[in-house]
Amino acid sequence: MTKAKLSKGLIFTLLLIGGIAMSIPFIWLLFSSFKHNKEIIGYPPTFFPETFTLTHYLNLNSRFNIGRYFMNSVFLSTVKTVLAVYTSLLCGYVLAKFNFFLKNFLFKIVLFTMMVPYIITVIPVYQMITDFGWKDQYIAIIAPTILSSFGIFMMRQYIKTGVPDELLEAARIDGAGEFRIFHTIVIPLCVNMISALTIFLFLWNWEDFLWPYLVLNTQDKFPLAVALNMFSGQNTTNYGGLFATSLVTILPVVIVYFMFQKRFVEGISMSGIK
């Protein structure tokens, strides 16, 4: 009995040590962002700030238009996520519930493209975007993700069993059209799946770096991740400013996580269910 208790305690202690180690980078960043630059580069290095300062935060907006980049990221991530979630539901529903000539072919394409490395399409799509004259426009970032193979697959698997055929038949007998059935019956039944996919796609879009970095030139259009990279290239020695800026880009997702913790964890777990 005591032995079991001892091992339980040991497991807990190990997990706690590991958990603290996991949060050290974030805590170090937080503390360092309140230090004067002199202290950051000084010797010996400190962990806790010796003199506490808010300078870096107060100066933030004058050198780095955080509000602007933040809104760009919010806009891009929201539009991309909403579009992909809606089309995933639509395509997933049709692939799950109707029989038609192209059905198997389309589903095979979805499965195939899930396995293909995205990088193989980056170069040709970049060439196309240039040819279309879409460079430096948001359409170049939004258009290639209007459909999500991952999302279609997830929705199709769920709707196949999660939306009962009897319910759809009943609505048809009542005279409802297919589009109304989709919007008033199918979508409400998929709420959990929708929130899972939304979280997943939003996180993906929020941290997306390479593609926006390649296609955008105008600073004012940059999303947060691209802007942060640019800022770090311009301010290599202003450590305090960099720390504060990085912290501000990390903080929103952390806050949102604690607001919807349960949904996040559910969403991530669902991606592993096959």
């Binding site: 590991g18 996991m22 974030f26 960043l29 997702v253 952390v254 996580y257 913790q261 964890v265 991530i268």
Partner: peptide, 23 residues
Amino acid sequence: MRSLYFLPVIMPIVAVALVWKWL
């Protein structure tokens, strides 16, 4: 405890890579 291990997953990779560069 789960949150301690999970939080880095949702942090944007660009910010995380910069922080670790300084670490």
